[in-house]
């Protein structure tokens, strides 16, 4: 009985995860290492990877900053009315429930060239949709809950007493945050950063809608994979996808390591 269950589990993992991963790897090298290298060194691939990198960096910075602040406000702020706090708290989760494509659509509707806001921005020479800012906004939307949801439970658990103690000892908010709050939440923030990086690295639907997928301009690694598949260039797609997968697996390992560290502290 026991053996059967373990066997089935291995089978599921093999069929669902290991086999596809292996197949993709061999696929990427189906024309040897040169084929893989050629797929990666195409100018559009290089540009797409660069674009993805830029989006990841900008989104991670912004999301970390605002996510931590939002978590602090949602847990600690006494100037927000209790009911409002409950409402804000449930709104935080909404991006989880929104299909990325819809997330992208929202931004097109709100800031696209046909919308009022979009026209205003275009008037001052700032193009948002089908350009870098739109991609950042779309990814920020999708990743917003990740940081807040990692930090909030830790803040709730440590309680506000240590911070109050620091304030009665004469520490200002800034000192209190860095010397007292930060050491307690840093692993949660680290975890949130990893999740944000992973998600913004892999974001596809929202970015595809917002970016317009213009080669060498707004194309990211994931949308390049999509385009390659649409063009039946599976080997090239496999090459870029393999790089993305390698990054994701690296992040996963980092996450496991962080989890262990978080457990220690």
């Amino acid at each position: 009985m026991r053996r059967l269950w373990i066997g089935i589990t291995y089978l599921v993992f093999f069929l669902l995860i290991i086999a596809p991963l292996g197949k993709m790897t061999t696929g990427a090298f189906s024309q040897g290492f040169d084929g893989f290298w050629a797929a990666l060194t195409r100018p559009e691939a290089q540009h797409a990877l660069l674009m993805t990198g830029l989006v990841v960096v900008v989104v991670t910075l912004l999301n970390t900053l605002f996510g931590v602040m939002m978590a602090l406000y949602l847990v600690r702020a006494n100037w927000i009315n209790r009911r409002l706090k409950g409402l804000l708290n449930s709104i935080v989760d909404l991006p989880y429930a929104v299909s990325p494509v819809i997330g992208g659509l929202m931004i097109v509707l709100l800031l696209g060239p046909d919308s009022a806001l979009g026209a205003i921005f275009e008037g001052i020479g700032l193009k948002i949709v089908y350009a870098f800012p739109g991609m950042v906004i779309a990814t920020l939307f999708v990743t917003f809950p990740l940081m807040v949801r990692e930090v909030m439970p830790v803040l709730q658990e440590i309680g506000s007493q240590q911070e109050e103690a620091a304030s009665t000892l004469g520490a200002r908010a800034w000192t209190t945050f860095w010397r007292v709050t930060w050491p307690s939440i840093r692993w949660a923030v680290m975890y949130g950063v990893i999740l944000t990086v992973a998600r913004s690295l892999g974001e596809f639907g929202a970015v595809l809608v917002v970016s317009g997928n213009i080669m060498n301009k707004t194309q990211t690694a994931t949308t390049l994979v999509y385009q390659d598949v649409e063009n039946f260039n599976v080997t090239a797609a496999g090459g870029v996808a393999l790089v993305l997968a390698a990054f994701s697996i690296g992040l996963l390992l980092l996450m496991e390591w962080t989890k262990r560290r978080k457990g220690v502290h």
Binding site: I17, P20, L21, G202, E203, F204, V229, A241, S248, M255
Partner: peptide
């Protein structure tokens, strides 16, 4: 177990397509 969360969904799709 967490790999499908970490992998970009487009990559997941491609993997299934190739397999």
């Amino acid at each position: 177990v967490d790999l499908p969360f970490a992998l970009p969904t487009a990559v997941g799709g491609l993997m299934i397509l190739l397999l």
